[in-house]
Nucleic acid binder design. Structure first.
Length: 111
DNA sequence: CCGATGACGCGCC
DNA sequence: GGGCGCGCCATCG
């Protein structure tokens, strides 16, 4: 099982209304390279199976260039984080401000 | 082959 | 707090 698959496996376990962070995932995989986790999600093969909008950075900030590039291009241009925010709000996630998730209430602890 | 890049994070100023 | 530099390492040009 490669790195990407392991990232997806973890993200799939995050329940609706909860979020996790790139760094937390990286550490649970035994690496400090959070950037590679981001790469994996950017190459996310199927949003339906991997709820990548539930992954934020360590400050709860949404991905500035969040986008589904699975088909080779981003579907939301440079404002993908807006789509990410909508999805989280729809799941009941609260925000500290327009782009920061309230981690103290929604951070999901990895197994 | 090599340098630049990036859905990140942390330490310093 | 905002901005900058560096480490990280697979990919890309």
């Amino acid at each position: 099982m490669n790195f990407f698959e392991r990232v997806y496996q973890i993200v799939r376990k995050v329940p609706a209304g909860k979020v996790t962070t790139y760094g937390a995932i990286a550490r649970s995989l035994g690496t400090k390279d959070a950037r590679r986790v981001g790469q994996a999600l950017h190459a996310n093969p199927d949003e339906g199976e991997v709820p990548c909008h539930r992954v934020v950075d360590k400050d709860g900030r949404l991905a500035p260039n969040f986008a589904f590039s699975t088909k080779g291009r981003s579907a939301f241009g440079g404002d993908g984080w807006q789509e990410q925010r909508r999805r989280l709000l729809a799941e009941g996630v609260k925000f500290r401000d327009v782009i920061h998730v309230d981690l103290s209430k929604h951070l999901w602890k990895l197994e």
